[in-house]
Amino acid sequence: MKDISLGQFYPARSPMHRLDPRTKILMTVVYIVMAIGFTSSFVSFGVLALIVLLGVLFSRIPIGKVLKSVRAIIFLVVFSFIFTLFFYSAKENDTLLVHWWKINIYLEGIYTATKLMLRLFLLVMGPTLLTLTTTPVDLTDGLESLLKPLKLIKFPVHELTIIMSIALRFIPSLSEETEKIINAQKARGADFDSGNIFKKAKALLPVLIPLFVSAFRRADELADAMDSRCYRGAKGRTKMKVLKLRFADFVAFFLLLAFFFVILLLKYNWFGIAFIEAFI
């Protein structure tokens, strides 16, 4: 639980770690747009997988770490796979593979379900690479810098990002506290493990109330401490870590755009290239 403190950050020295957080955030956004909107054939999923693989190689993170992130959504993926498979609405020329009672399984159904599965897996893996290679502080700094234009419309960018980083900072403290409260209640005979789901939820109430009280007390103390350290919002505030784009950032970003172009080409085939036709 305590490892939450750094998000999932995996400390290492690598080209990916050194990239500017802004570049990495933008790349992740582009990647997500690609994965959701423009990948349709198995080949383009292959291209996405290649991007992730390159990312893993350049970040020197053991691939197991990245795959682990997928574990959290495996239930969702399996569920949606089965759902899509059974409820696939067939078109005219689809090949029927299995017909039993009311269940029809089509070859095209298998294709669609597999693509959905791949899409979900790849959608999780991309952003995971971002959080594995970027500390929460860098992440919020990058976000603050990227959102700066919104200041023109009086959007409280600094406030939003400081709230985010403080929230991240307090996750381990609060989870530690929760554990303590649960243990204290257990010591006094509270039962969290038996009964149905409603009973269990009700048993958590005596945990949540002291947790909230303590969270407010902490907030109060933190506010005093921040005031005491001359905090007055974004006014006149500078940064120790100044974000700086390097040549590598441009290279990485344009490389990603090149992949994006390939994926677009695979989808729309503007130039009518014959061998792409085969993949669509």
């Binding site: 502080v137 403080i166 900072r169 401490a225 120790m240």
Partner: peptide
């Protein structure tokens, strides 16, 4: 615990001087 604003020590120490501009 309730006086720290950042998860990395140097970032936390920097908070004050950053506020000074």
């Amino acid at each position: 615990d309730n006086q720290m604003v950042a998860t990395i020590i140097e970032d936390d120490i920097a908070f004050g001087p950053e506020n000074l501009g």
